[in-house]
Design a binder for these strands. Sequence first.
DNA 1: ATATAATAGATTAAAAAAGGCCCATTAACA
DNA 2: TGTTAATGGGCCTTTTTTAATCTATTATAT
Lengths: 110, 110
Amino acid sequence: MDFYTLSDKGIEGEIGRRIKALRLRKNITQKELAEATTVSLNTIKSLESGSGKLSTVIAVLRELGALDQIDNFIPEPSISPLQLARMQGRQRERASGGRRKHRAEDDAEW
Amino acid sequence: MDFYTLSDKGIEGEIGRRIKALRLRKNITQKELAEATTVSLNTIKSLESGSGKLSTVIAVLRELGALDQIDNFIPEPSISPLQLARMQGRQRERASGGRRKHRAEDDAEW
DNA sequence: ATATAATAGATTAAAAAAGGCCCATTAACA
DNA sequence: TGTTAATGGGCCTTTTTTAATCTATTATAT
């Protein structure tokens, strides 16, 4: 599935559908899920239709036993040897290049 | 990394840190990211500290070129042959068992 | 070493989500 | 087939997020 072909709204909807599918696979009702996560039934409904807070997603995924997926979601970005060399081993804390007239094309170089 | 050992707040923080790391890896400032996603600078700050809406996460991940990760995040749940048989091929649309006195232990059977 | 851009934090108002409640529809049970 | 629990949608109030702006700190380029 290529999410880049979808609009933001489209992606939200797809995520909602998948969460619902996860819940149904465990045969849990929205009400049960709401009670288990201590969020309201309304919030579960909204989430399954695509809108909600990040914290809600996390609470629900925990209850559905799908928390480990988050690791793939936003993986710990690894540092390229090239960058590591350029920065003498230190981690960059701020984006930079601001004082340049024309910012160099972002080097996505690896 | 085992997210189940973290609290919800802890996970939110970790996600924020990873998004920030993704941004820094591309050497983009918060301001630039805000303009590119048409969300405010404030919202980017908040997101990187762990709070925000699902829609904000999506917009930011799109801009950072990490949208494809969502597929792993909440994978399309596959149906087990067992369940498929029980339901005569139809997809379940509602959780059930509600009319039972004591709900059977959720069969996570595959 | 200095200058400055990047970032964190705080405040106020507007927008959206969350929470609680009610009503209508219908999938799934018996 | 009849019953009813599960779900969706609306409405209202409370809480949280977003947005805009300002101040303070400090990493980074020169």
